[in-house]
């Protein structure tokens, strides 16, 4: 397991991001080591989504510096494409491509973005559909799948890019509890493989089981950044304690 700061794969350095006059990220500095698993939590509107969406440049930062696997995300188009091929994202909204089968969803980017042949892309897609236990659904369209199955296909779609970094933005918050379980189980399995993962979630059981570090965000800032034991037993900030009390129902 990598320790924070050594061989970082993602670095934020004084990053600001505003929407109009609203400061979504307010001077964020963060270093994520290769292979680290980071869980981000915090109240709604605190900037969690914005932070992960900056990493694959779905949002452009206003100031500061952001590098991903040594590539400076400064607006250069080729740098953006390169970073997007090193990262893959699972969204909260189940946004599979509705006109493609599960297999087509997972094979699309390996073929289109990575230049694999159709056959190679599909073989790879099958492998990752199997990894998240939806291989038997390969020929179905998203509209024919349950929410949990859809989200696992979305994970397979992300994995099929074989990315350096996996990003998750509240992957289970649109799902029923039973489906949440199956998706979290799949994510836990993947976490064992040593890929860098940055996960926005309020599933504290998952955080405890998987995270190397847990970040607590509030008001566009990282308020707390600690390993799970310290994060849960001895949070340093009052805001973190209040949030934990609320979310854990103390």
């Amino acid at each position: 397991m990598a320790t924070p700061g050594t061989n970082p794969i993602v670095t934020f350095d004084g990053v600001h991001k505003t929407f109009g006059r609203f400061r979504a990220l307010n001077g964020v500095s963060l270093s994520v080591g290769r292979g680290e698993r980071i869980v981000i939590c915090g109240p709604s509107g605190s900037g969690k989504s914005t932070l992960v969406r900056c990493i694959n440049r779905l949002e452009a930062i206003d100031s500061g510096r952001l590098t991903v696997d040594g590539i400076d995300l400064d607006g250069d188009v080729r740098a953006i494409r390169a970073v997007r091929r090193k990262t893959a994202m699972v969204f909260q909204s189940l946004n599979l491509f509705p006109h493609l089968t599960a297999l087509g969803n997972a094979a699309f980017a390996p073929e289109s973005a990575l230049g694999l042949s159709r056959g190679e892309a599909e073989a790879r897609a099958m492998r990752y559909l199997a990894r998240v236990h939806v291989l038997d659904q390969a020929d179905k369209y998203p509209g024919q799948l349950s929410g949990g199955q859809q989200q696992r296909v979305a994970i397979a779609r992300a994995l099929a890019m074989e990315p350096e970094i996996l990003l998750f933005d509240e992957p289970t918050s649109a799902l029923d509890p039973e489906m949440t379980r199956e998706v979290l189980d799949a994510m836990i399995e993947i976490a064992r493989e040593g890929r860098t993962m940055i996960v926005v979630t309020h599933e504290m059981g998952f955080a405890r089981a998987v995270a190397d570090r847990i970040l607590f965000m509030d008001g566009g800032e990282i308020v707390e950044d600690a390993p799970p034991s310290a994060f849960f037993e001895a949070p340093r900030q009052e805001r973190t304690r209040a949030f934990l009390a609320q979310i854990l129902g103390h």
């Binding site: 694959n56 779905l58 494409r81 390169a82 970073v83 997007r84 091929r85 990262t87 893959a88 994202m89 969204f91 909204s93 946004n95 599979l96 491509f97 699309f108 980017a109 289109s112 973005a113 779609r157 890019m161």
Partner: peptide
């Protein structure tokens, strides 16, 4: 969200 899903895959 469809545009974003495609963009996030680097196509």
């Amino acid at each position: 969200s469809q545009y974003e899903a495609a963009d996030s895959l680097g196509v």
